[in-house]
């Protein structure tokens, strides 16, 4: 028998097996999805669960269609996504900027260290009422909530990544007489980029938390507001429908950042 052909046949077999494996995973995922919604629907119709509290997929679906066609969904969604995005950018880049300042001045880091530790340990959403009082009820305070929740942890993670850069890379640059900014630009920042990008992923999720909590507290629009409103008027179809939209959009954003990460990492 031809050895070369049999190698190729083996490889084909291996590929086929991988494909089958992949397909079976997909089937299971789909099955769980269908099972969950079917069970929910049945349980609701047969009153195994209280339909007033847990609603049902058809009611949520109807509400979804109604709100999409009326433009209502788009309105609330746009507000929340913009707030989340702004909070994410502010928290992430603010954190990186502070990390840079701490890296630039060892002294500053030592002085601020205990404050950063306290701020990091503090549950940031507890600052909500103060932020709202200070900045007024509106986009400003909600975006701040979305930012403040991630800024400190970003700063600490990125700072330690800056510190961990191999000193010999700096030595190479120093031997050419590099300035501190050149050290940062040529070695410290590019070497820390993977760590920075991985904070993006975490921060997307954190910004959602901050913004939703912010909307709980103060807003008159947005998905977080819809949840609170639905809760107050005991319209749990509205609550669940908002929840599903949030889950969907948050997952989409996470995927986008994930793609961005892969793309950026390939570039460097």
């Amino acid at each position: 028998m031809n050895q070369h052909l049999s190698d190729k046949a083996l490889f084909d077999q291996h590929k086929k097996r991988l494909k089958a494996e992949h397909r079976s995973t997909r089937y299971w995922q789909l099955l769980i999805f269908i099972l969950f919604f079917t069970l929910w629907e049945i349980a609701s119709r047969l009153h195994w669960i209280d339909p007033l509290i847990f609603s049902s997929p058809t009611k949520v679906g109807q509400s979804l269609i109604k709100n999409i066609s009326s433009g209502d969904l788009w309105f609330h969604l746009r507000v929340t996504v913009l707030e989340t995005f702004a909070g994410f950018l502010l928290g992430t880049f603010g954190g990186i900027l502070i990390a840079f300042m701490l890296w630039n001045s060892r002294k500053l880091y030592h002085v601020l260290d205990p404050y950063l530790v306290v701020l990091n340990a503090l549950p940031k959403v507890a600052l909500g009422p103060i932020i709202i009082v200070a900045l007024g009820p509106g986009y400003g305070s909600i975006i701040t909530m979305g930012a403040i929740i991630s800024i400190i942890v970003t700063c600490l993670v990125v700072y330690s990544a800056f510190r961990e850069v191999d000193a010999n890379y700096l030595k190479v640059l120093q031997s050419f007489g590099a300035t501190k900014w050149q050290l940062f630009k040529e070695a410290v920042f590019p070497a820390s980029l993977p760590a920075i990008i991985s904070t993006f992923k975490v921060n997307v999720g954190l910004s959602w938390v901050g913004v939703i909590v912010g909307e709980f507290l103060v807003a008159s629009k947005g998905l977080g507001y819809l949840i609170v409103y639905g809760f107050q008027v005991f319209n749990f179809t509205l609550v669940l429908y908002s929840l599903i939209v949030i889950a969907f959009i948050a997952a989409l954003m996470y995927q986008a950042v994930d793609k961005l990460e892969k793309w950026l990492l390939k570039k460097i």
Binding site: N168, K171, S175, A178, A191
Partner: peptide, 27 residues
């Protein structure tokens, strides 16, 4: 001065030519 270290410490995110040119770039 030119300084050569125990290991090469080439910057992995730079092409070979850019690694060689880092000194002139810094200066």
């Amino acid at each position: 001065m030119g300084y050569m270290l125990q290991q090469d410490y080439l910057f992995p995110w730079k092409k070979i030519i850019d690694n060689v040119l880092i000194g002139p770039k810094i200066r």
